[in-house]
Amino acid sequence: MTLYLLVFAVCMLVIGSVLAVLMLSRTPRYLTRPEDLLALFTKALDNNVSETEWNTIIGYPIRHDEFLEGVRRRALRVMDEHGRHGRAQRGGQLLDSEGQEELKAMRDHLNARTELRKAALNNKTSR
């Protein structure tokens, strides 16, 4: 009977520990950074991105930064209007020429904004 109670207590301890860990842990969150979007746009302009990778990053809402969410929505609109669905897997371009021009302008704008924010942060920390 003692062995039974010992095994029961150990099992309850293990199950209770697992439940406590599950209840106290948070759901992992993916935070899209400007660098992630810049890298994706560069890969798309170089024809090195798959449609799946594009949809994975652009299809995930960005809730922590309103500006990045606007950029994501514009990129989604560019894909809807100028995307060549299915051609990227066959070695073609993800976007037509007009879509690539819009994406290049978005990338340049995002890059300039990111550099300005970094410069502003460096000025604040150097004071």
Rank of each mutant, 00 (worst) to 15 (best):
A20L: 12
W54R: 00
Q89H: 03
M1C: 11
A112L: 08
R87M: 02
N123W: 13
F41Y: 09
E81H: 03
D108R: 01
R63C: 06
S50I: 01
C11P: 11
T125C: 13
D108K: 05
N111T: 10
L22Y: 15
E53N: 09
G99C: 01
R33N: 12
V49C: 00
Q89V: 03
T52H: 04
E69L: 09
A20F: 13
R72P: 10
E66M: 13
P28S: 09
Q93T: 03
R113Y: 07
T56P: 04
L110F: 07
Q89W: 05
N123M: 11
L40Q: 04
G86Y: 01
K118A: 06
H64C: 07
C11F: 15
L31Q: 07
R26S: 07
S17V: 08
K43L: 10
E101K: 05
R73E: 13
D36I: 04
R107G: 01
I57R: 04
A105D: 00
H64K: 09
A44G: 02
T27H: 06
I58N: 04
D36V: 10
S25F: 14
S50P: 03
R113P: 03
M23D: 10
T56G: 06
R73D: 10
I58M: 05
D36N: 10
D46P: 11
L40W: 02
A120P: 04
W54L: 01
Q93W: 00
L22M: 15
M1K: 10
D80E: 10
M23H: 15
L22H: 15
Y4W: 12
E81M: 06
D80V: 05
R77D: 11
K118H: 13
V10I: 15
I62K: 06
I62E: 04
L68Q: 05
R73A: 11
F41M: 10
E51D: 11
E53L: 08
G16A: 11
H82F: 00
N123D: 14
T114R: 13
R107S: 01
A75Q: 06
L116Y: 08
R87N: 01
G99R: 00
A105G: 03
G91H: 04
S126Q: 12
G92H: 01
E69R: 14
